[in-house]
């Protein structure tokens, strides 16, 4: 339903609003009247693209997918319909995606870190590579640990000091998540007890840190950048902090504490059914070509920044890069399986 090609015009008057609403209603009506019939398709795409988001509306995936689609329409002239299928750490979205027709008209917008870990740890029967191929990576961001503005802990060292006397409570989005792995690895390296408290999404996790229900939060770094003054980043799970401006110039965790935790990132990537990848190589090629054109478009940089995400996180990568990133995450998940599954 979402016409991503529509960009926000500057202050619309009453007439143009009414005109726009009429046009949108007509477009919505016309588009839903057009039956999906690939038999008549001259070109790909002959109809709307379905975008499956395995988390809720208003979350980070929604934000990034919309920023992408707002420019993608220039390079792939069609409409993009967004569908949200949250549940069971993303399992619902993935299983629902697998039930869709594998015709390259349905794509999943993946958050490679948490979702690949989920696919590895939960009994989904979906396997990366065999069932889903990630054809294009768009953004990558490191995990970070942060606190609310009123927190008494102002540095990573202070937080660790607290941890020497009592367990540290850490709000996370869910257990199968690179940020959770980062905190567990930190606890393991320093001999402190980390209690992960999964709040089931970025927004409630952030709220728990801001209200100081927990000692700190561990999330993808954009969450704290978007929050501005409401978060103080203490450390980044990366070799260096590439976005020091929005993140209180926080140090890399390893540099601050002398640990050697692997860099923990999560990448957004477009995924497609393996069956569609094999059966419709020309469609997949068209998709990849338009995605790469989008990533190279200066408008995409503005769209990303407009959504509050630093453009340094734009990290184009082809299929081999995206699949390698997924594979690395699978290995991490296997290493921390017991802690993440409660077994």
């Amino acid at each position: 339903m979402t016409r991503s090609t529509i960009k926000a015009p500057s202050l619309l008057g009453r007439r143009s609003f009414l005109k726009a609403s009429g046009a949108v209603a007509a477009a919505a009506g016309a588009s839903s009247l057009l039956m999906p019939s690939s038999a008549f398709a001259q070109d790909f795409p002959a109809r709307n693209m379905d975008i499956i988001i395995p988390t809720g509306e208003g979350g980070g995936a929604d934000r990034d997918a919309r920023a992408f689609a707002s420019v993608w329409g220039k390079h792939l002239p069609t409409n993009f319909q967004f569908g949200y299928y949250p549940g069971a750490a993303g399992q619902v979205g993935y299983e629902f995606y697998m039930s869709r027709e594998p015709d390259a008209y349905s794509l999943i917008f993946a958050n490679l870190g948490p979702e690949v870990i989920m696919l590895e740890l939960q009994d989904t029967g979906i396997s990366v590579g065999e069932d889903i191929v990630f054809i294009q990576q768009t953004l990558s961001e490191p995990m970070c640990v942060w606190v609310g503005p009123n927190s008494p802990h102002r540095t990573l060292e202070e937080l660790v000091e607290v941890g020497r006397n009592r367990p540290i409570t850490v709000a996370v989005s869910r257990l199968p998540h690179p940020a959770s792995i980062g905190m567990l690895a930190l606890g393991e390296a320093l001999g402190i007890e980390i209690v992960l408290v999964p709040y089931g999404g970025g927004n409630p996790t952030a709220m728990a840190a801001i209200t100081m229900e927990v000692d700190c939060a561990a999330l993808p770094i954009t969450n704290s950048i978007v929050l501005g003054d409401q978060s103080i980043v203490l450390g980044v799970f990366a070799d260096e902090n590439v976005a020091p401006d929005g993140t209180d110039n926080a140090p890399a965790v390893n540099a601050a504490l002398g640990t050697s935790i692997p860099a923990l990132t999560s990448s957004r990537a477009w995924g497609v059914h393996r069956a569609a990848y094999d059966a419709h190589p020309e469609r997949v090629a068209r998709l990849v070509e338009s995605m790469q054109a989008t990533l190279a478009d200066p408008d995409y940089v503005s769209a990303v920044e407009g959504a509050g995400v630093p453009s340094v996180f734009i990290d184009p990568g082809d299929e081999s890069v995206a699949m390698a990133s997924a594979q690395a995450t699978i290995e991490l998940a296997r290493r921390y399986r017991d802690l993440l599954t409660g077994s």
Partner: peptide
């Protein structure tokens, strides 16, 4: 179907 564009089966 036409106005709201729900995805009910066609």
């Amino acid at each position: 179907i036409v106005l709201l564009g729900t995805r009910f089966p066609l």
